[in-house]
Amino acid sequence: MTDGPTMDTDAVPAVPAARAASGPVPVAPPGRPEPPEDDGSEGGGRRANKGVWIRAGIYVIGFHVFAGFIMLLFYFGSHQHH
């Protein structure tokens, strides 16, 4: 005999009410291949992240050049002598 509560090994673990109401959880088929590792190609991994940062930097610099050009147009337009 034991003094404290015992754990029944055949018992089903409790499921939160929200999850139980939503139905069964989908399971991936057992034959599904794992995603490929990064092979260093242009399409994925660190190299793709680096490309995104370079592209974002070019866009930021280009936007500032364009904004500066527009500001110059307003500046010269406001100082135009008739």
Rank of each mutant, 00 (worst) to 15 (best):
R32L: 14
G40Q: 08
D39F: 01
R46E: 12
P35H: 01
F63S: 12
V65C: 08
G62K: 04
I61F: 15
E42L: 10
I70Q: 12
L72P: 00
K50L: 14
S41Q: 03
I61Y: 13
P33G: 07
F69I: 14
A67W: 13
I54E: 15
V65A: 13
G68A: 10
G51T: 01
H64Y: 14
G44M: 05
R32K: 09
R46M: 11
I61C: 15
G62I: 02
A56M: 13
E42Q: 08
P36Q: 03
P35G: 02
I58L: 13
F66Q: 02
D38V: 10
P30V: 10
P35Q: 03
G68K: 01
G68F: 11
A48L: 15
E42R: 11
R55K: 11
A67C: 10
P35F: 02
Y75H: 06
E34M: 12
F63H: 03
V52N: 06
G44L: 01
P35L: 05
P36Y: 00
G45H: 04
D38E: 15
L73R: 08
Y59P: 00
D39V: 01
Y75E: 05
S41T: 15
P36I: 02
E37Q: 10
H64A: 14
W53G: 07
F66K: 00
A48E: 12
G68T: 09
V52R: 14
M71N: 01
R32S: 08
R55N: 13
V60H: 04
D39G: 05
A67I: 09
I61R: 06
V60F: 15
L73V: 14
G31F: 07
G51M: 11
G44E: 00
G40N: 07
V52A: 13
P33N: 09
E42H: 06
I61V: 15
F63V: 07
L73H: 02
G45Q: 04
M71Y: 06
R46Y: 03
Y59R: 10
E42Y: 10
G43P: 00
V65W: 07
P35A: 03
P36T: 02
L72R: 02
G44F: 00
G31L: 05
R32V: 07
R46W: 06
H64R: 03
A67G: 03
R47V: 05
E37Y: 03
A56H: 11
S41A: 09
K50D: 10
R32C: 03
E34D: 09
A48C: 06
V52Y: 10
K50R: 14
R55S: 14
E42M: 09
G45F: 09
G57T: 08
W53N: 11
G51W: 04
V52E: 04
G43M: 03
I70C: 12
V60A: 15
L72V: 09
M71W: 07
P33E: 07
S41R: 09
Y59G: 08
F74G: 04
G51Y: 07
A67K: 05
N49Q: 15
H64N: 11
I61H: 04
R46D: 13
G43N: 04
L72I: 09
I54H: 05
F63N: 01
F66A: 15
F66W: 12
G45W: 05
A56F: 11
E34V: 08
